[in-house]
Simulated assay, not measured.
Amino acid sequence: MQQVDASEIWRDLGSAYFRELSTFGAMQDAVLLNMLTTGRVLQLKSGEVLYSVGEKTAYFYIVLQGSINNFIPGQDGSMVLSRHHEPGDDLGFVHMISLNDRTATAIAEQDTVILEMSIEQFFELHQTAPDAFGVLLLNLARGMARTIIRMAHKIAELDKRIYIAERK
């Protein structure tokens, strides 16, 4: 994992690209650029681990390019895919906000660029740009809501399969 020049990424991709990412939707260019330059923009190679189960949580991440998969430990010791993250998705926010250690291992599915945002940076945004913080929080909450809805559909699907299997 290596740090990338945030200003270069901003120039290369353009402000419109960032505004199209779900976590950054409706945010002003100046705020987005500040988030990139005060955070850390990191590049991961395919297969590289971002974080592992049990690690302390002081950051959350936003996928800028590429994709990352989260794996949780299965009962048999295997790693089970729990979530796939595309550009615009956040990962690690729930753990950071709940002050819990990581419950998953995040691995880059392909070469991936992410923004790392610390608890301190998140709080600083709240203090210095409350309107932008509100938009960011709304976007993050919207992402969590979509995830909860997908999880509910998966649970219902599994319940249906179990019900059908038990009737046979």
Score class of each variant (00 low, 15 high):
74 G>A: 14
18 F>E: 01
131 D>L: 07
143 G>T: 07
1 M>T: 09
101 D>F: 00
116 E>V: 02
82 S>T: 10
76 D>I: 15
88 G>P: 12
115 L>C: 12
140 L>E: 02
120 E>V: 09
153 H>K: 10
79 M>N: 06
117 M>T: 15
64 L>K: 01
9 I>A: 01
95 H>Q: 14
95 H>G: 13
164 I>M: 00
113 V>A: 02
111 D>T: 04
127 Q>S: 04
33 L>R: 14
134 G>K: 05
123 F>G: 10
77 G>N: 04
82 S>C: 12
61 Y>S: 06
87 P>T: 04
58 A>K: 12
158 L>I: 09
107 I>S: 01
53 V>I: 15
94 V>W: 02
83 R>L: 14
11 R>L: 12
156 A>N: 14
60 F>Y: 10
123 F>W: 13
95 H>T: 13
109 E>M: 15
23 T>D: 08
73 P>M: 02
45 K>R: 11
90 D>A: 11
3 Q>L: 06
35 M>F: 12
107 I>H: 02
150 R>I: 02
98 S>A: 15
106 A>S: 11
46 S>E: 11
124 E>R: 10
54 G>I: 09
101 D>A: 02
130 P>E: 08
72 I>K: 13
80 V>W: 13
1 M>H: 11
51 Y>S: 01
107 I>Y: 00
18 F>L: 03
138 L>M: 03
117 M>K: 06
157 E>Q: 08
25 G>Q: 14
80 V>Y: 07
87 P>D: 11
25 G>W: 07
101 D>M: 00
121 Q>D: 14
168 K>N: 15
45 K>N: 06
48 E>P: 08
91 L>N: 03
153 H>E: 15
88 G>Q: 08
69 N>H: 06
162 I>C: 13
144 M>K: 09
2 Q>G: 01
80 V>M: 14
167 R>G: 03
32 L>G: 15
54 G>E: 13
154 K>P: 05
85 H>T: 05
129 A>N: 12
142 R>V: 08
38 T>H: 12
18 F>N: 02
155 I>K: 05
96 M>T: 03
79 M>H: 06
140 L>D: 03
125 L>Y: 07
9 I>D: 00
26 A>C: 04
46 S>P: 13
153 H>G: 05
131 D>A: 03
12 D>W: 15
140 L>C: 05
163 Y>Q: 07
156 A>T: 05
36 L>Q: 06
125 L>P: 13
93 F>K: 07
80 V>G: 14
104 A>L: 09
74 G>Q: 12
44 L>F: 05
17 Y>H: 14
1 M>K: 15
145 A>V: 03
71 F>I: 03
41 V>F: 03
21 L>Q: 03
161 R>H: 10
157 E>T: 06
111 D>N: 07
81 L>K: 15
34 N>W: 08
19 R>C: 07
136 L>N: 01
29 D>T: 15
14 G>E: 10
95 H>F: 08
61 Y>G: 02
149 I>H: 13
8 E>N: 02
40 R>G: 03
77 G>T: 04
4 V>P: 00
21 L>N: 04
79 M>R: 10
71 F>N: 08
60 F>H: 04
138 L>T: 04
3 Q>I: 06
105 T>W: 00
84 H>S: 06
110 Q>G: 00
160 K>M: 04
108 A>C: 11
135 V>K: 09
93 F>E: 12
